[in-house]
Structure formats: structure tokens, C-alpha cells
Design a protein around this nucleic acid. Structure first.
Lengths: 350, 350
DNA sequence: CGTTCTACGTAAATCGTTCTACATTTTTTA
DNA sequence: TAAAAAATGTAGAACGATTTACGTAGAACG
């Protein structure tokens, strides 16, 4: 009922059975807790002999620092990754790049999935800040850019898929979407197409920095440059199920385009599906192009011509930049990779 | 240089500017820190008036509890989800189910991605334990089942995709893979097929509880039941790129099967690709069946007959079970959902 | 030989919660 | 109306690390 002898810690060296903490290590190595902490953090003022002793004890006891305790004092060594759509196979390439770049660093990436729901996205960010994450990666966020500013003011952030070349609050990582889209149109024109339609994402009109808008911009520029202004036709659709319906409408219209440039692979797969359902041959009746060059492009049933933007590289750069920011860099960096068109059967007969 | 007035906390109510903690709230509401904590945890002994006052202050100040600090004392309200393969679209259905079930609970799921690498998987688990996660979800883990036992002894765990009906240390969530596989074979036989091959995953021979093994078992049972023992043929392949090669070999052999049952959709998509590359028609020359009924099955270019196991439901059940376990349930629960065959064009002409 | 640096260690405060053990009402019961 | 029980609130000790401020040897210096 009352304090039985032994209920409370008995002297500085004692501890609960089974639980290995920094004091267990200190006791085992015969040094102070602070000394162990120094070794853990590679801090200044540690002799080789002390370091060796402590390291041996850590190894022997299988000690692992408690991340919550660390989080209370500063670093949690955890990076939050905000994934707007787990279904997008391109994003998994990015993740692979991030994971690889973080191997052998003390940082651990943990993902939150928002499914493009803005409310969820904000809640997820709050949850990550509550959890003392050291930094945040946004992958193709849907939320209000102003809200991102607010977050970046609180915590080091890198955003993938948002064009803000003069942003100072956070770093950005992108491919050159305008150029990529132009490449697509240039190529289709070179193949003899002229009635080239574009399928984009249904976005609020103020999101000029968003990826779909940039791709649309490249499409429009190139169409105009080729003197195809009268063939310009942009269709807006939401995500997958709706995209197929829109594609069906587009492809069954009397003035059907002879090529469709879809803003993302997923949309292109839906378009191929719609074409097949309508009895159209790809590419003979209609050529189809996607964006991201995600793994399914390579399947023969898709054989989708697409724009490659090297997700792994983007991911790796992102991880590097975020770590730099956490270590203290304050000037923003904006990384842009050049996209590259990969031609496959959806635009050309084998 | 030395302690300037104001450097240290001045009395219990003072705090660093900008940082809203539980004491800020307590000061604002004119109550004790413990009282606020009680309100936060819905603990016993709080009057309505006190609760109202505290809630108002929390709202007004925009206070959010620090998860690290909570983690130090017990709950971190974070659930770790171990995803063995982020590319698998079926897993994203599971995630959607988990997310939905966790909305309006205090728990936040965070994902770790292992890409089926066993070393990474173990490291990820350690990282999650270091971060004081309240519970763990394993989605189709590849690691040694004995290692899972060790983890489950430390932290409440639910495992999806591991058949252990008598396990007491953790809960499991599955569909009945044996039945599902039997349904596939039964259906193919009813459609007149007999030379039905099976593509499975290349696994160490001791993993009897793993999903691919269960599906193979169902395949074998059904084949035998139909008197098709001499047609039994199982091909083992690793993940995607290798699977296509194996499928190509299988389908270009002189004794080519007239139907292929693939252990998972991804494998089936690769098989369709291989068939097309070889100039074979699906389903006329070869019928193909997958497992999981993931979203791409529905695309016309795949039109893949597949076994549905309702990922959303599995995910929701998982979340429920894990929360129960965290709240104290110790008896294991093993949830099994009945699979259901969804017939599409890959086995039947439209 | 006394003084000043370094290099190496340590003690103790601190981070923001939770939660046990009381203290103080208020209500119920006898 | 006194005693017991229930309801409500508080003080303060954890939790496990980091980090500041210092103490103590030697080494280097004049």
C-alpha cells in the first residue's frame, strides 16, 4: 500500500529489470551518464579509451536510445514524409530514393498518407509536429500553399512537386514540368499528330505552382509554337474513376483527338482502358502519352510512352537537402531535374 | 555571461514565448497542471465546469500535447505500420481501411517501408520501438516468424498475411487463402481448363504460414480433387522483373499451360505482359487469374479475373484489433474473411 | 615553480507529460 | 448532526535523454 522498500530507484545505478537506459550503460561502463550521452552524440571532449569502453557496454547491453526522450530535448531523428497518394507508383520510386539516401544516417523516415484529402493532410502535419519530427517532406501536397509556408516556418521542410523557384522558407525538388510537356507535344507532332488533347487534374484556379498547371502550360506553349492553337483542348478530371469517364467522353466525341497527353500515368492508363472499351486501337486510332514513367508503363498491355523524371534521384536529393536544412542551412535550395521522354508502343507501332 | 534575470523560468506559470504547453493552459484556465492532464485523458474526477474551462483554454491557445513527452510516460498514440511493399496496390487498400478506422481516435498511424528487405524490416521495427509506438501492424512481413514472436512480446501487434490460427502472442488478419485458391481452380475447371499452372513466390522452404504457401496449397488440393494431378505445375519467381521472365519461359514452352493462376495481381500483370509479348491471346490462348482484386484489375487492358479479399475491411479490422490489444486485451484474436472470385475478361471473352 | 591552457569528465537542470498519493470539499448515510 | 463515502482538485515525482556550467588533471609556458 505505502512505499515498500525497493519500490523507488535505489541510488543512481539501479534500474527496472529488463529496461536498458543510458544509466544502465553508464553504470556498466563505470562512467557518468553525461559521458555516455557525449559518446552517443559524437560530442567534443571524449577520449578514445572512454569512447571504447562506452561503445563496448552499449554493444554488450544492446542499448538503444529512447527517441521520445531525445525528442523532448531536441532531435527525434525522425523525418515525416507526407504522401498525398499511396497508389501512385511513381511516389514509391521517390520513397525508394529517400530510403536509400537515409540508410546509414541516424534519421528514420516515417510516412503519413493523406489520400489527397486536404483536411487529412493538415491533421497529418500537426500529428508530425506533435511528434517532434526533425523535418518534413511533402510529396505533391494538395494543401493551400500558404499553409505550407506556415508549416515551413516551424520545421525544416522540403517539398516535391511544387514550383516555387524563389521560395525562401523551404527547399523544393522538381522536374521541369514545362519542358517535359513540351517534349511530349514536340514528339507527337513529329509523329504526324496535330489534334492533341490534354487531360489534366481538376484544380482550384489559384494553384499556379502546382504540377498539373505547369504541365498544362508546357502543352499550351508547345501547341502554340507549332501553330496548333485551334487544336488545343484541355479536359479536367479528378482522380482515377472519374478520369476514365472523362476519357470516354473525350474519345467518343465526333471530333475525337488523334493523340491524348495525360498529365500523369494513372490518368493515361485510364485513357487506354477507355479507348479499348470504345473499340479504338492504340496507337493507330489514338496515341496516348503519360507522365512519370512509373513501372507499369513497361507492361506490354500498357506499353505507355511517358516522361521519365527519375523518382529515385528526386528522392535522394530530397533526403540530402532536408538533412542539410536540419543541420542548419537556412538559404533555400531548389533542385530541378531534366525530364526525358521514353517512347513506347502507345505512340508507335512496334 | 551569467544568469541574467529572466533567463530561467519565473514561477510556475511562466513559459518560453510562443510555446504552448500544458502549463500555459493550466495558467490560462487558472487550474493545476494535473487538472489539465486529467481533462486531456478523460480521467476520473473532473467536474463539468472545470472541464469546460480547460477545454476553452485549450481551444483558445491552440494547445497540442507533445507526443514525445507523452511517449516518455507511456502512450505515444502512434501506431507503426510495417509495409513490406509500397508498390502493391492492394496494400494501399489495407492502408485506406486502417486510416478510416483510426479517424476520430487519438491514434495516428505512421508507415515504414521495408521493400521486402529483411534487414530493413528488422531495423524498421527497432526504430518504431525506439519511438515508443503503442502498437505495430505488420503487412505481409517477410521476416522470420520467430523474430515476430520476439517483437510481439514487447509490443502489441497485429499481423496481416501470416497464417497462425493458434498464435497467442499476436492477432492475425487474413483472408482464407486456401479457399480462395480453390475457387480459382474450380472456376477455371468449370470453364474447361485443365492444364492450369501456378506461379508463386520464391520463398525459403520453412515458411509454411506465409500467404504464397497457403495459396499453393489450395491450388494443389483443388487440382487433386479434380483429378488433374498430372497437370500440376508450379513455377517460383521473385518479384516483378523476374516474374515476367519466368512467365515468358512458362508460356513459350512446348507444353504451355492453358491457364495460369498467379499468386498475386502484380505477378498476373507481368504474365499478361509476357503473353502479349509472345503473341498469345488472353484468354483464348491462355487464361490468367490473379489474387487481391487490386484497382488495376479493372482496367480494360488488364481486365484481370482476381480474388477479392476486401482490403479495406481487413485494414479496418486490423485497426480495431490493435486498439483493443493496446487497451488491454490479451487473448489473441484471429480474423479471417472469405474471399470472393471476381471474373473479368482475362478468363472469359466479353 | 607558479600560471594558464587544454582535454576530459561530471553534476544537475531541463524538456512536457502522466499519475500516485494525498488534501479538501461536498454529499450521503446512520 | 456526526461520521463515512464520494467527488474534486493539487503537489510533485517520475520517464530518459541532452546540455550547460564547472571541476580536475596534466601539459605547456614563461
Amino acid at each position: 500500500m505505502n512505499d515498500v522498500l525497493g519500490t523507488k530507484r535505489e541510488g543512481p545505478g539501479a534500474e527496472k529489470p529488463g529496461r536498458v537506459t543510458i544509466r544502465t550503460v553508464a553504470a556498466d561502463a563505470g562512467v557518468s551518464v553525461s559521458a555516455v550521452s557525449k559518446v552517443l552524440r559524437n560530442a567534443y571532449g571524449v577520449s578514445d579509451s572512454l569512447k571504447a569502453r562506452v561503445t563496448a557496454s552499449i554493444e554488450k547491453l544492446g542499448y538503444r536510445p529512447n527517441a521520445s526522450a531525445r525528442g523532448m530535448r531536441g532531435r527525434s531523428y525522425t523525418l515525416g514524409v507526407l504522401l498525398s497518394d499511396i497508389r501512385n507508383p511513381f511516389f514509391s520510386e521517390i520513397m525508394a530514393g529517400i530510403n536509400t539516401a537515409l540508410t546509414d544516417t541516424p534519421y528514420q523516415p516515417l510516412l503519413g498518407v493523406s489520400n489527397s484529402a486536404i483536411g487529412v493532410e493538415q491533421a497529418l502535419i500537426d500529428a508530425m509536429i506533435d511528434r517532434q519530427m526533425d523535418g518534413l517532406v511533402f510529396i505533391a501536397p494538395r494543401m493551400d500553399p500558404v499553409a505550407i509556408d506556415a508549416v515551413a516556418r516551424k520545421i525544416p521542410s522540403v517539398v516535391i512537386g511544387l514550383h516555387r523557384p524563389t521560395e525562401e522558407l523551404f527547399d523544393t525538388v522538381n522536374n521541369d514540368d514545362v519542358t517535359g510537356a513540351e517534349q511530349v507535344v514536340d514528339y507527337l507532332v513529329s509523329q504526324g499528330h496535330s489534334a492533341i488533347a490534354h487531360m489534366s487534374l481538376d484544380l482550384p484556379p489559384d494553384e499556379r505552382q502546382a504540377v498539373p498547371f505547369q504541365r498544362e502550360k508546357g502543352y499550351l506553349q508547345a501547341m502554340n509554337r507549332h501553330g496548333l492553337a485551334r487544336h488545343i483542348r484541355v479536359v479536367y478530371a479528378e482522380h482515377s474513376p472519374k478520369a476514365r469517364q472523362k476519357a470516354r467522353e473525350l474519345l467518343s466525341a465526333p471530333d475525337r483527338p488523334d493523340a491524348v497527353f495525360c498529365w500523369t500515368d494513372a490518368c493515361a492508363f485510364e485513357s487506354i482502358s477507355a479507348a479499348i472499351e470504345l473499340g479504338l486501337r492504340v496507337p493507330d486510332d489514338v496515341a496516348i502519352v503519360g507522365y512519370d514513367n512509373s513501372p507499369p508503363c513497361d507492361l506490354a498491355q500498357n506499353s505507355l510512352t511517358s516522361v521519365d523524371q527519375s523518382g529515385r534521384q528526386l528522392g535522394a536529393e530530397t533526403a540530402r537537402m532536408l538533412m542539410e536544412r536540419i543541420e542548419g542551412r537556412t538559404r533555400a535550395e531548389h533542385f530541378v531535374v531534366e525530364p526525358r521522354l521514353v517512347v513506347r508502343g502507345s505512340t508507335r507501332n512496334a
